[in-house]
Amino acid sequence: MTTSTLETPRSESSSARGFNRDHFENALLKVLRPLVIALLFLAAVFPFYYMVLLSFRSLESLLQNPGSLWISVDEFDPSTYLDVLAPVSDGGQGFATFMRNSLVVALGTVVLSLLVAIPGAYAVSRLAFLGRRQVSGLFLAVYFFPSILLAVPLFVFFTQVGLRGSLVGLLIVYVSQVVAVSIYTLRNYFATVPVSLEEAAAIDGCSRLQIMRRISLPLAMPAIISNGLFIFMIAWNEFLFALLFLVERRDSWTVSLGLSQLSGSIEVPTTVLMAGSVILTLPIILLFFASERLLVGGLTAGAEKG
C-alpha cells in the first residue's frame, strides 16, 4: 500500500528517461522473476523426479523410450525395489544389509558424538579452563582440513591394525570428524542460556552436573536435536572414508558405498540401482522436510564439510 501511494507522485514528476528505465527494469523483472524461480525449481527437483521415475520402470521400457517423463500404469514396475533389497543369496543386491550398516554407523555416530560434544560444548561456552581458546582454534582447524590428507595415514593405520572392513573403525573416524563441528554449533546455543538461571540453581544447591542436566540441557534441546539430525545426515551421506575402509567386504558396505560400487558394473540394471538411490535418498529427504526449520538453522550454524 505505502509503496504504491508513494510511487504515483514520483513517477509523474520524474524525468521521462528515468521513468522509462525504472519502468523497463520493473517490467523486465516482473517477467524474469517467475521464470528464474521456475527454472531454479526445475533444476533442483527434476533429477530427483527422474530418479523416482526410473526406479519404477524396467530397463527394457527405459531403453525403448528414454525420453518419456511420465509412467503409464502398465509400465509401472515396483519389482526393482524387491530386487535391490533382497539379499545376494536370493539373487538380489543386498541393499537391506547396506541400510542396516548405514543405520548402525549413522546412529552410532550421532549418539557417540553428542555424548562427547554436549559436555565439551558446555565447557567451552561456560567454564574458564586452561587452554580454552586454543581448543576452540584446534576444532575450527579440524573442520577445514582436507579429508584426503587425513585419509592417507588412516588408511595406512587401519591396514596395519587390520581394522579395514570393520564398522567400528569407520564409526571412530566419523565421530572424530563430526565432534569438532558439533561443539562449535552447540557452544553458541549454550551461550544463549542465561547465566542467571544457572546461578539460581547453584544457589538452590545444585552441583555443576545437576545444573547441566536440569537447566542447560533442556533449554538447549532444540539445538541438540537439530545437531543430531545434522550429524546423522553427514554420516549417512559420507563416501570417501567408507570407500577406503569398507570396500573389500561387501557385507559391511553402507548404502552410499554399495550404490557407488554396483553402479560401475554392467550386470545390475540401471533402473534397479535407481531404486537403490531412492532408498539412499529418501530417509534424508524425509528427515529434511520433517525438520526443515530446525535443520536450516543447523546447516547455517555449522555447514557440512564437503
Binding site: 524461480i37 531454479l40 525449481f41 533442483a44 527437483v45 533429477p47 530427483f48 527422474y50 530418479m51 526410473l54 527405459l62 531403453l63 528414454p66 525420453g67 517423463l69 545426515m233 549417512w236 551421506n237 563416501f239 548404502v255 552410499s256 558405498l257 550404490l259 557407488s260 553402479s263 540401471t270 540401482l273 535407481m274 538411490s277 539412499l280 535418498t281 534424508i284 529427504i285 529434511f288 522436510f289 526443515e292 536450516v296 546447516l299 557440512e304 564437503g306
Partner: peptide, 30 residues
C-alpha cells in the same frame, strides 16, 4: 520452493552423481 531448492545440497552425493550420470548417459539418458 525454498525447501526444494535445498535438495541438491542435502541429498547424498552418491545418489546425486548417479542420477546425473544416468541423465547424461549417451545411450538412454534424458
Amino acid at each position: 520452493i525454498r525447501a526444494s531448492l535445498l535438495l541438491p545440497y542435502v541429498a547424498p552425493v552418491v545418489a546425486a552423481t548417479f542420477v546425473w550420470s544416468t541423465m547424461l548417459n549417451p545411450q538412454f539418458g534424458v
